[in-house]
């Protein structure tokens, strides 16, 4: 779908050809992404994959070097002004001299059609903390206050940048329960995370990022299928990585001296091809790839 079509058909988010570099680093290196209203999308990837940079541009907090961004058919800043999009930011302390309710009230005061402060606090599960100073609460509670700050504008699109990063397991579970109650009302959600299980459990769709690009995009089941497979390890004397990567059934190849690691979608075909090409191959080892390994393989630096 082209940007124009996506916008015309009422996409919640349409990114096309998005680039952003910081000095020599290509933080975001050509991203195209369309999110439909009502979708809950996980932006998954390791640190430095470009998730936060993408999120910042989507929110109008930074400007892309090139590419188009549309949020409900508007520019990010217009969408923010209209209260159509809000976000729970990763960084950012709260006001040290205000209570939780006051901080939420200040943000509410700036929006045109906010929900009542009390309701935002209830949705975020922190109604009991309303009168507490922002500095006198735990890390997990602080994240919930940020969640309330994002909710109070009653947005159609909610963007969460690594929302559960400071939470323990129990708090994390509770947070997602709250979150799910909200998404059940048909809101669009995009959340960045580097926890695979969060993406699996809470997203309808997973967008996998690595070094500024999208490497996989689909339903959880699809991405799981893409990343499942086997690894083949062997010693192959004097062979180039490119030859190995070209073998049938091989998705990615890695070499360390003569030691070769192949990530395979079809390890049988790969093994036949490898032996036909390199009869001197020895010490062959084939292992099933867990989802976690596959994720790491897909998002790892050396994979081509």
């Amino acid at each position: 779908m082209t940007q124009a079509t996506a916008v015309r058909t009422g996409a919640a988010v349409a990114l096309s050809g998005l680039h952003k570099r910081f000095g020599e680093v290509r933080a975001v290196d050509g991203i195209d992404l369309v999110i439909s209203p009502g979708e809950v999308v996980a932006l998954l990837g390791p640190n430095g994959a470009g998730k936060s940079t993408t999120v910042d541009m989507l929110l109008g907090l930074s400007t892309p070097d090139s590419g188009e961004i549309s949020v409900f058919g508007r520019t990010p800043r217009e969408a923010v002004k209209a209260g159509a999009v809000s976000a729970m930011l990763q960084s950012g302390a709260l006001l040290e001299d205000a209570t939780v309710a006051e901080a939420v009230e200040m943000i509410a005061a700036l929006h045109r059609e906010p929900m009542p402060v009390q309701r935002a606090l209830e949705l975020a599960g922190i109604a009991d903390l309303a009168k507490r100073k922002c500095t006198k609460i735990s890390g997990g509670q602080t994240q919930r206050v940020r969640f309330a700050l994002a909710l109070v504008s009653d947005p159609d699109l909610l963007v969460l940048d690594e929302p559960t990063v400071a939470m323990d397991v129990e708090t994390r579970r509770q947070f997602w329960q709250t979150m799910r109650a909200y998404t059940d009302t048909g809101r669009t959600v995009l959340f960045a995370t580097h926890y695979l299980e969060e993406a699996e459990e809470y997203a309808d769709r997973v967008v996998l990022m690595r070094t500024g690009r999208i490497v996989a995009d689909g339903s959880v089941a699809q991405v799981r299928a893409t990343v499942s497979g086997r690894t083949l390890r062997a010693v192959v004397p004097g062979v180039s990585r490119h030859v190995l990567a070209g073998l049938p059934g091989v998705r990615a190849a890695e070499t360390r001296g003569d030691q070769v690691t192949l990530t395979c979608s079809d390890s049988d075909a790969a093994l036949r091809g490898l032996l036909a090409l390199q009869p001197a191959t020895h010490d062959i080892e084939i292992n099933a790839l867990g989802l976690e390994d596959a994720f790491l393989a897909l998002t790892g630096e050396d994979v081509r």
């Binding site: 923010v80 209260g83 976000a87 960084s91 302390a93 040290e96 700036l110």
Partner: peptide, 17 residues
């Protein structure tokens, strides 16, 4: 300076202000 450093200003940039 404090609001710039603490990230509150970033939060404000996500409002119509």
């Amino acid at each position: 300076a404090v609001e710039r450093g603490s990230g509150w200003q970033r939060q404000l940039r996500l409002t119509p202000l």
